[in-house]
Amino acid sequence: MTPTHTSGRVAIPSLPTVLDAFNIAPAAEARGLLLDCLRSLRWAERIAAHRPYPTVEALLAASDEAAYDLTSADLSEALAAETLPLLPEGAYSPAHMAMDAAHAAYEARFGHAFVICLDGLPADEALDHVLAGIRSRLTNDPEEERVVAAEELRRVARGRLVSSLRGAGL
């Protein structure tokens, strides 16, 4: 029997992607990666439980959906683990004092760290953006601020998830 040829092309198996590795990772490992993105166990478990994801976009959509569904307790858990964004290297001392004072006022008013997504923002604009954000959001009532903080957490988690996948070679 002679072998049949199919147009002279050789089938080359595709290499696994970072998404493939995430999809097949043990649940505990996937949850660990996710918890580095957002410190909500319910959020991480939900995303890990719905694997495999056919595309990165599907994973990010699931991340967004799970973030929108955070309960008040889940949100409190995630906010408790957040820290203030780092100032750019070389920021002058008065900037640190202004940031510390604004953050202290924010924490005193709302009981959790100020969260703001800085994705896509040039480093030299970060300080002004954070300070303006804190000052502006200090005028929110506590319920309104929880909604804003939840949205910022969702954006931060999404950015961290993308960075984690990129860092792993995506």
Rank of each mutant, 00 (worst) to 15 (best):
T2L: 15
T4E: 07
T6K: 06
S7E: 12
G8M: 07
R9G: 03
A11H: 13
I12R: 05
P13H: 08
P13V: 13
P16F: 04
P16C: 03
T17W: 04
V18W: 01
V18C: 06
V18L: 02
D20W: 02
N23D: 04
A27T: 14
A28T: 09
E29A: 14
A30V: 07
A30W: 01
L33F: 06
L33D: 00
L34R: 00
L34P: 00
L35Y: 00
C37V: 06
C37I: 02
L38K: 01
L38H: 00
R39L: 07
R39E: 10
R39C: 09
R39H: 13
S40G: 06
R42Q: 08
A44L: 08
E45R: 07
E45K: 02
R46I: 02
A48C: 07
A48P: 01
A48V: 02
P52Y: 04
P52W: 05
Y53I: 07
P54I: 08
P54A: 15
T55A: 14
V56Q: 08
E57Q: 14
A58N: 00
L59M: 12
L59E: 03
L59Q: 02
A61N: 05
S63Q: 09
D64T: 10
A66W: 07
L70F: 02
S72Y: 01
A81G: 09
T83P: 00
T83D: 06
T83L: 09
L84N: 07
P85I: 07
P88T: 12
P88M: 08
P88K: 08
E89S: 13
G90Q: 05
G90W: 08
Y92M: 12
S93P: 10
P94R: 12
P94Y: 12
H96A: 13
M97F: 11
D100H: 11
A101T: 11
A102W: 06
A104R: 09
A104G: 08
A105Y: 01
E107K: 12
A108F: 03
R109N: 08
H112N: 10
H112E: 05
H112K: 05
F114T: 05
I116T: 09
C117A: 14
L118M: 06
L118E: 07
D119T: 15
D119F: 11
G120Y: 09
L121M: 15
L121E: 11
L121Y: 07
D124G: 12
E125W: 13
E125C: 15
A126I: 10
L127Y: 14
H129W: 10
V130R: 04
A132E: 15
G133E: 05
I134N: 04
I134S: 06
S136R: 15
R137M: 04
R137I: 05
L138Y: 13
L138N: 11
L138F: 14
T139S: 14
T139A: 15
N140L: 05
D141K: 05
P142R: 10
P142G: 01
E143F: 04
E143H: 09
E143D: 15
E145C: 02
V147A: 12
V147W: 09
A149S: 14
L153Q: 13
R154D: 01
R155D: 09
A157P: 06
R158H: 15
R158D: 11
G159Y: 04
R160A: 10
V162E: 13
S164Y: 04
S164V: 09
R166M: 10
R166T: 13
G167R: 08
G167M: 02
L170F: 07
